[in-house]
Nucleic acid binder design. Structure first.
Length: 808
DNA sequence: GAGTTGGTCGCC
DNA sequence: GCGACCAACTCG
């Protein structure tokens, strides 16, 4: 029995610290029975009572707020968009990530459901307004008003008219959601009538002729767009035909479903190795016993982790439960998707960044309505509104893309564990190179540890050679290629085999420097050098997007000796075409994959052997499985090692192990060549041997001695402001407060200016807290945030990131 | 003295 | 995030 909903607590869509609390509203009688928690509503907020969207958290019959209450203006939903689980997860997420509750709620729903705000001016007295204002309205009494878009004299005239009461300003809250509507057409005449119409057409009406002839053959309704393509007609022809009364046109809502567009063959479960079978058995036992156990599934590349996942999911489904599988964005390749869809068919929902807002919304709705019971997706799919979760799988659990870098700064692994507790179901973390955190927990028995030590069919690991570039670089005319790599590529090209070349983008740069005076071309807004872009022939800033022309003379000393330095994919591509003029090269980097679908297209083309060499950044390292690739070259293995980040070795090791697994996946033998300036570094030597265990021990020892994770927890506090002194002052104040609040076992690193101190005209300072046990720390940090509300108005911002993955 | 500009306050 | 409000400032 529902309580009569006379009052509701609403979280409003105003992401600030001061409004990060529920507000009580009165519920109009006509939607007393309609309203329930988790629904979106539109409420008046602030002195101007502008309308904003909000989420209902609670409905009740007794108001707890003493002041005057406003009424809920409208309901946006008939059914709650957030279920009880989401309503419980939100506050937890807000607390642990130091985020606004509204941001946490928003992140759980598809962006199509997020409100879009606009303003509207209403003419209330049309007699006393200036001519320009009357012209603005034309024949209308209401008009959308975008303050930015209306040019100056008119803008202030409108605002003045508003102040004097001639105009009214209304707030409009729009759902961004638009069901996809598609134009359909149908012949309005029968076959005989159509044929008659055709005979009466003028001789030059070729397009209409084509259309009517086709329609007389196909009387059923058809999608106009498809027909346009098929018959090579323009929309104009259809409009014409409609005008003449030969066809009728109508709109129909279309369900977008990216899965069904893939033409996928059904696959059957494969036979399992004893290790795989043991892993499956261990996990499904926990599904059956409804235990929220976390497993670490450690399996070398090619050991068949995916098949283990699929059989676990199959078991969950057989128990009438659902399954969630997270995969890093870049491994969400068509190959991967096909494998899952091939096994589970249309009950699979896909959530990845390549989807449009509408497609994502449709997938979300299929999940919510229970039509989709298996969800495969990247980070944010961890919030997929599945009911009766049976298992959560996180593949490549060490991937840093599981951590969101903006508010709310959550880690998908933590959210997964929370949901697993809620549903009493197991979590499986899978990786060939687990994060040290997870591997250490497995060691301690916090996670259950499953191992797949053997590659399927005992295929040998590819032979990996390290090339010392300190010697090699001098020997060739090409600074990015050793002779060994050139020779190896040469051989593959002759044998018509494929090559993958990877450029480690971290620390990658090709900047302009003057050879005479050493001047480096920097961004005017950020403390970073501009990078050279060959395609647009310009210098760009990767942080703020600033772009300028390539200088021909040094702006500082006027010398003409200004050149670019460093290695970028574009430059390497140039070198490659010189080295191997006959080779077909595909380049894959941020520039070539910006457009939607470009990523998949490049990989497909490479898979179809339309190129001999695939050149790219990290994004090519993941999950690719090409039988004809027999050589993988890493051009610069160690650019990341130079960075002052304690995870640099871990990342380098993981990346190299991963790419090495790419060579020789099928019958042919594979070879890996890693070029490096640090051939003695343990991360490289152990990646060469694919020895994770040894790496784990070495690295743990270093972390232990340095007092880093997983031995310590870390929290990063950043202060930023338009003026450097403000940011510095803020971080030192914060430092002082923390110093007194923390126990003696905690360590504070810094405060220091960030490595890139200025981004987009803002200055950044940071400090890092390392601690083992500080029960009062979270509360202290929340209080610091609470207190810095004041300074926020002058542009001084404090942000807190728990367990950050980037320290620079 | 009306009208603009800038900073601060509080939102149920 | 944004309008209301107040105080300072500006200009004929």
């Amino acid at each position: 029995m529902l309580a009569i909903a006379q009052y509701a607590e609403v979280i409003v869509d105003v992401p600030t610290m001061q409004t990060n609390q529920p507000y009580t509203y009165k519920v109009k009688h006509n939607f007393e029975n309609e309203l329930s928690p988790g629904m979106r509503v539109i409420v008046p907020f602030g002195r101007g009572s502008r309308l904003v969207q909000g989420f209902v958290m609670r409905v009740f019959s007794q108001a707890s707020f003493a002041g005057e209450l406003k009424e809920i203006e409208a309901l946006t939903d008939l059914e709650p968009v957030l279920d009880a689980e989401a309503l419980a997860l939100g506050p937890w997420l807000a607390q642990t990530t130091f985020s606004f509750l509204i941001s946490c709620l928003q992140v759980m729903i598809p962006s199509a459901l997020r409100a879009k705000y606009s303003k509207e001016l209403e003419l209330t007295n049309k007699f006393n307004v200036p001519e320009a204002v009357r012209a603005f309205f034309g024949a209308h009494t209401k008009k959308l008003f975008d303050e930015q878009k209306v040019a100056e004299p008119l803008r202030s005239q409108l605002l003045t008219a508003r102040r004097t009461g001639m105009l009214k300003l209304n707030y409009v809250v729009n759902d961004r959601l638009q069901a996809k509507q598609v134009s359909f057409i149908k012949a309005a005449l029968d076959k005989a009538e159509l044929e008659q119409a055709v005979s009466k057409l003028r001789a030059n009406a070729r397009n209409l002729h084509t259309l009517l002839t086709y329609l007389s053959q196909h009387p059923q309704a058809m999608q106009q767009g498809l027909l346009e393509k098929k018959l090579a007609l323009s929309p104009e022809t259809f409009r014409n035909a409609e005008k003449k009364g030969w066809i009728t046109r109508f709109k129909q809502v279309q369900y977008r479903n990216p899965v069904r567009q893939l033409n996928v063959k059904r696959t059957v479960p494969r036979h399992l190795t004893p290790a795989q079978a043991a892993a499956v058995a261990a996990v499904i036992a926990q599904i059956d016993q409804q235990q929220p156990t976390t497993f670490l599934l450690e399996g070398v590349t090619g050991s068949g982790k995916t098949e283990v996942y699929l059989q676990i999911i199959a078991h969950a489904l057989a128990q009438k439960k659902t399954a969630l599988m997270l995969v890093p964005e870049i491994s969400l390749t068509p190959q991967m998707v096909k494998r899952v869809v091939g096994r589970f068919g249309t009950q699979v929902a896909l959530l990845h960044s390549g989807l449009s807002d509408g497609e994502r919304f449709d997938e979300w709705r299929r999940i919510k309505e229970g039509q989709a019971t298996v969800v495969v997706g990247a980070r944010s799919a961890v919030f997929a509104p599945l009911k009766r979760l049976g298992v959560i799988i996180i593949d490549e659990e060490h991937e840093s893309s599981y951590k969101q870098e903006k508010m709310p700064r959550y880690h998908a692994r933590d959210v997964a564990k929370w949901r697993a507790d809620f549903h009493s179901c197991p979590v499986v973390l899978g990786s060939a190179t687990p994060s040290l955190e997870s591997r250490a927990r497995a060691q301690k028995g916090v996670y259950r540890w499953l191992k797949l030590p053997q590659r399927i069919n005992n295929k040998p690991l590819p032979q990996v050679s390290l090339i010392d570039m300190r010697q090699e670089a001098k020997k060739t005319r090409f600074p990015d290629f050793s002779q060994a790599l050139i020779d190896a590529v040469e051989i593959r090209l002759a044998k018509k085999e494929q090559v993958i070349l990877m450029l480690n983008r971290r620390g990658y740069s090709s900047f302009m420097m003057c050879r005479d005076c050493g001047y480096v071309l920097n961004c005017p807004n950020c403390d970073i050098s501009l990078t050279f872009h060959l395609d647009t022939h310009s210098m760009k800033c990767h942080y703020c997007g600033h772009e300028e022309a390539i200088p021909h003379v040094c702006p500082s000393c006027g010398s003409r000796q200004i050149r670019y330095y460093g290695t970028g994919t574009q430059k390497v591509e140039q070198e490659l075409t010189q080295l191997f003029p006959q080779a077909r090269i595909l380049r894959m980097d941020v520039d070539t994959t910006k457009r939607k679908g470009a990523h998949a297209r490049i990989l497909r083309e490479f898979g179809e052997r339309k190129a001999d060499i695939l050149l790219g950044t990290q994004m090519i390292a993941k999950g690719l499985d090409y039988p004809d690739v027999t050589l993988v070259g890493v051009l610069n293995a160690d650019t990341a090692l130079g960075l002052a980040d304690f995870r640099a070795s871990e990342r380098t090791f993981q990346l190299l192990t991963q790419v090495s697994g790419r060579a020789g996946r099928a019958q042919k033998e594979g070879k890996v060549i890693i070029q490096t300036y640090n051939p003695e570094h343990y991360a490289l030597l152990l990646a060469q041997k694919q020895d994770y265990e040894q790496f784990f021990m070495r690295e743990m020892d270093i972390r232990h001695r340095g007092g880093y994770p997983p031995y310590y927890f870390t929290i990063q506090v950043t202060a930023s402001a338009p003026a450097e002194s403000q940011a510095a002052k803020k971080i030192f104040e914060t430092y002082k407060t923390l110093k007194t609040a923390l126990s003696s076992s905690a360590v504070i690193l810094g405060p220091t200016p960030k490595a890139i101190m200025r981004i987009n005209k803002r200055y950044y300072y940071q400090l890092i807290i390392k601690y083992k046990k500080e029960p009062g720390l979270a509360a202290c940090l929340s209080e610091l945030l609470q207190k810095s509300q004041r300074s926020e108005r002058t542009g001084v911002l404090l942000t807190i990131d728990r367990e950050p993955l980037n320290f620079i």
